[in-house]
């Protein structure tokens, strides 16, 4: 390749995800805005919710790696090809953990009594 053009990545991801591309981008942005809004609303990050979100987020990481293996007809042993494979696996897992944790944190924060019952650390 002679150059890296960020718009090429956008075009490629659009082809990859089809109609789901923009809704997915919208959902990710919505989650980021929601987490930021909740932190501002509460004036802090609720440690209880954070621990819970991180715990469930770990499943998101496992799910992300599993889904990637499934989509690519790969086996777990294929992940051990070299350092770049370990890094890619970690990146996929991290995306799953962060994404999962954000969704859980937002869900907990919108619970009926979440704002009032968040215990002090």
């Amino acid at each position: 390749m002679q150059q890296i053009d960020p718009m090429v990545f956008v075009a490629v991801f659009q082809e990859m995800l089809g109609l789901a591309f923009w809704p997915l981008i919208g959902f990710i942005l919505l989650m980021v805005v929601a987490v930021a809004g909740i932190v501002i609303r509460d004036g802090r990050i609720s440690p209880r919710r954070l621990v819970f979100a991180q715990g469930l987020g770990a499943f998101g990481g496992i799910l992300a790696v599993w889904a990637m293996l499934w989509f690519t007809s790969s086996r777990a042993t294929d992940l051990l090809g070299g350092p770049i494979d370990w890094l890619l696996t970690l990146a996929i897992a991290a995306a799953g953990v962060i994404g999962g944790a954000m969704i859980v944190y937002v869900a907990l924060s919108f619970g009926p009594t979440s704002a009032r019952r968040s215990p002090a650390p």
């Binding site: 990859m16 990637m68 989509f71 690519t72 007809s73 790969s74 294929d78 992940l79 051990l80 090809g81 070299g82 770049i84 494979d85 890619l88 696996t89």
Partner: peptide, 10 residues
């Protein structure tokens, strides 16, 4: 590498 396979596959 797995990463090269992933590129080919998806």
């Amino acid at each position: 590498l797995w990463v090269s396979w992933v590129m080919k596959d998806i």
